[in-house]
Design a protein around this nucleic acid. Sequence first.
DNA 1: GTATAAACGAGACGGTACGTCCGGTCTTGTA
DNA 2: TACAAGACCGGACGTACCGTCTCGTTTATAC
Lengths: 223, 223, 223, 223
Amino acid sequence: MTERAPGGTTTAAGGAVPAPAAEPTERRGRPRNAAVDTTVVETVLRLLEEGVTMGELSMERIAREAGVGKATLYRRWAGKEELMLDVLRSLDDADPELPGTSARDDLVVLLELLRRRGLAKRSSAVLRTVISQVQAHPRLWKEYHQTVILARRATVHAVLRRGMTTGELRDDLDIQLLSDLFVSPMLSRAMLHEWEELPEGLAEQIVDAVMEGARPRPEGPAR
Amino acid sequence: MTERAPGGTTTAAGGAVPAPAAEPTERRGRPRNAAVDTTVVETVLRLLEEGVTMGELSMERIAREAGVGKATLYRRWAGKEELMLDVLRSLDDADPELPGTSARDDLVVLLELLRRRGLAKRSSAVLRTVISQVQAHPRLWKEYHQTVILARRATVHAVLRRGMTTGELRDDLDIQLLSDLFVSPMLSRAMLHEWEELPEGLAEQIVDAVMEGARPRPEGPAR
Amino acid sequence: MTERAPGGTTTAAGGAVPAPAAEPTERRGRPRNAAVDTTVVETVLRLLEEGVTMGELSMERIAREAGVGKATLYRRWAGKEELMLDVLRSLDDADPELPGTSARDDLVVLLELLRRRGLAKRSSAVLRTVISQVQAHPRLWKEYHQTVILARRATVHAVLRRGMTTGELRDDLDIQLLSDLFVSPMLSRAMLHEWEELPEGLAEQIVDAVMEGARPRPEGPAR
Amino acid sequence: MTERAPGGTTTAAGGAVPAPAAEPTERRGRPRNAAVDTTVVETVLRLLEEGVTMGELSMERIAREAGVGKATLYRRWAGKEELMLDVLRSLDDADPELPGTSARDDLVVLLELLRRRGLAKRSSAVLRTVISQVQAHPRLWKEYHQTVILARRATVHAVLRRGMTTGELRDDLDIQLLSDLFVSPMLSRAMLHEWEELPEGLAEQIVDAVMEGARPRPEGPAR
DNA sequence: GTATAAACGAGACGGTACGTCCGGTCTTGTA
DNA sequence: TACAAGACCGGACGTACCGTCTCGTTTATAC
């Protein structure tokens, strides 16, 4: 959580943890309006979708457009960057349903998800804008990295490990290296803002190419 | 050139073209002080190395620290972003000498170069800072992409194409896809700011893993 | 009364009337804590004595220092200014005992009282601060003028009128003019914040000088 | 001068001293726009005349209405109060021409001037507003006191001293006391915001009453 | 030489955003 | 219903930067 507040569960973030159980803190005074978090994040998204540049997105303006006092913003987020982090998090969606038929199929699904995300309406312009903003702030990037990126990575690792045990994948390679072989070709295109060049069958192409390798095989391409 | 000026030659940028020869324009008044470009870019680099955040790097401060008038900055760059673009370009170094013994060896050299860059003193902290700034500006990013990134990519493509003709590499794969398979694992780690996790033999590991593929091969690992 | 409240009795103000007796209004809910009025006014006085500037005296701070909710303040006073008016009133003390031996002696006592007030601990720094605040608000000043100043003036007028009948004072002068001749020399020094320049025998000096006039008298100085 | 600036002669203030001659300070950069001082002070006066309350007169608004950047205001004045001090000073007019026929006549002229000032268009509402604001700030008030009030007082003292030598006035009274006897009756009415009660012949009435004294004189009232 | 013209350091200028604080209002839980 | 606590919207505070604009000075080329 980036929230400055004492307690309080963010409704904005996607997979927010439901507060670590016991909370004996005696709460006094008027409680925070939970709707404010949502409203603000939604407002930022709306503005970004309308083509508002990052530089034009001042806290001043966000407050104005969201119909919220500036103090209210600063009560919840330490600055524009932390707010952006929450906006970024709100774009994350839950883990996908994997077919489980084979490591290859699971990987295709995961990569396809990544591709779709890049092409999705909201994420497209918005994500690339917000993410570069967050990247410029080491602390935020670290937080995002640990919260979101590592979570996604864990899913991939699980699939790979299962593939190794079934013999579908080589087991003499470092799991992280293997993970990168599959994921990074899609990921780097995304990060270089080449979303538009993500054609339909790309996920399958990547997975199959990595499976078979760049060196010509004597026999046919497996199966 | 990002320069606004009429005819100025950048000394800062690495592979800057030395002005297209003939220049019949009648030049009058005091000529630009070429040292200023260098001084400014070096000042920015120095500040970034000293740990100054992107947000703290105002034109005001750059001018102050470089001992230069603000007008002088704006006479040469349209804004902070264009200045940063030049700073970024100044970090680029010339193309490497390739051994040419095999596609595999050439690729290892290229990836090793990428890895070293990430670990180099200047580039380390600085590059990741500047690049995220430039990424936030579509226009600048496009310019950087076309000037620098595509140039590097061309080198890789040449190597790959040569490997296809020699039979060292499969020729049934899209050249860009193949390029991504080799380069992106190193690149994405860099972009996710995981420079520190770039171990010694990583370049070789990646190249060999991509060559052989993730699927177990019946026979031994080639040659 | 400045109080907004239904029926509250101010304990702070000096000569406050104790609520006009009968009050058939059906009062419900928790009754007001009468101590709050006192606490708040005393807190303001304490802060002012401690050298807190007028500008630093926000309602926020008053509530904080008095250990009182902001709403409670606004329930009793419409704003900072009305609160200050009550503070100012709390500084007023009862009418003095006049000797009555002669108009001259009575005037000396009245002026001496004015002088002493200026030198008193509380009034000194505080009064000059609060009064200038109240002066900036026409409505409040009018209220203070009518409540306090006119009351004082009436006392002086009575003394003067008695002096006229006894022949001690000229009866061809406007009573208000005459009053000003005696009182204003002391008063204006006070308002110009020249309290410190109020020497011991000043009251007598003023009264005698006004009695005799500025023009040299042929005979000795009376009586 | 309240100005924060290095050097610079205020054009706003009335009796501004013309800079103490030699000024070897090497001035660099764009010089201040002298017109700004005038514009700002005039804007404040205009707003006050239009009935804008002191509380509504924020630096924000002054800048807006004067078409001036906030930084420009703060470059010249340390805050609202110091600006008000200059506004107050701009209301001061030069010393009057005294008839010199007698001390009595001179005093009447001086008091009449005071009375007129109170009734004048600008001074009326404005002066009482600004002065109470300045009064609330000890430092400013002290400055105003020393700059303006003491200057006026000196004029009165000169008149009195001359009257003493000519025998028109008693010479056994303290000069400051004597000064107060004449001036304060008019002054205190002004400070108590009783401008409206300043009738036509008041100046003469006061002077004559103080000259003759409050005690009945045996012979006729002089001359 | 002497004019002309541009570059230069400095810094004022009108704007705008920053993050903080206050003013008044409101909404909790407790008394 | 009063009360302490504190969230809420609005808006002023004083500072920092933005990009532009004078200043006085310096340094070239053109006459």
